[in-house]
Every structure is written in structure tokens, then in C-alpha cells.
Amino acid sequence: MAYPALVMGWAALGNGIDVTIFFTFWGMDMITKLRQDHLEIAAVGNTSMKMSMMGVNTGNLGIPQWMGSLPGMTAVATALMKSKMAKIHVPPVSEYLQMLVDGGAKLYACKMSVDMMGLKKEDFVDGVIDIVTASDFMDMTDGAQIIFI
């Protein structure tokens, strides 16, 4: 999920806390130009798919797992997520990430993920400062509180 890191980072910046984000593995799409605006959310194996669906309060019922695997369900879940976010005035991921950069957040891409996925610095959005190793990230955040999202 892309939003938790954005929400936590934005709240930290708003409260005067420095923010450095290290993107790895499944976080790479979020900073990759071609993919950033095409993020998807899968209904399969997702425990949070129990929100009210299309205005119907479904209580504890969510999208059943078997249904989540039907063709097109990821698109449906993604569209639902996007509309729910827009309704509570949460900006799309690309815009939200830019807000963090403008607010002073430093973004770094994980070297190992970059090597594994065959990505290059040019593939990333402008806010990404560099491609670094996990060890580099530890050095630059020495003494800070690190949270894994």
C-alpha cells in the first residue's frame, strides 16, 4: 500500500520532523515514473477489504477471497479505492508524494531492488535523490526513528 507511508511522512513533516524515505521492493512502483499513476490494489489476501461497498453497509462482509481472484477484480478494487480516497479529499499518490518532496522529504531508491528490477535513476520521479544501499540509508538516518511500512 502506498498511502500509509505518505500519510505518516506528511504528518511528520507537518509536525516538524525530518523525513527520509527508503523505497524497496514493492515500494518501487510508487517512485517509478511509468507506474506511479497506475498503482493497483488486489482484493486477494487483503484483510482491509471490508469497507462499505458502493454505499451498501456490508458490516463485517467484504469481497470474498474467491471473488478477488476473478479477472478484473483488481481493477474494480483499485477504482473503488481511488474513488473512496477522492471522496475524503486525499490526493492521488503522485500528487501526495510531490507534496512530501515540497515539504522537504528526502526520497531514496534501494540499490538491490533497482538491480533486481533493472531500473535506472532516470526511471524515477524527480524527488528521488539517489539510489543507495540499505547500509547507506542507516548511515544517513543514524539516531532517527525508523519505521517499516
Binding site: 504528518a11 513533516l13 507537518g14 515540497d102 515539504g103
Partner: peptide, 16 residues
């Protein structure tokens, strides 16, 4: 106002 300006005008924690 831009986000950049907001953070520059009220540095270190504009929200509060």
C-alpha cells in the same frame, strides 16, 4: 500558496 512556500514561511512543522 505552494507547499514549498508554506513550509518555508512556517518552517519546522507548519501544521501546528
Amino acid at each position: 500558496v505552494t507547499t514549498k512556500d508554506l513550509f518555508a514561511l512556517f518552517p519546522k512543522g507548519p501544521a501546528k
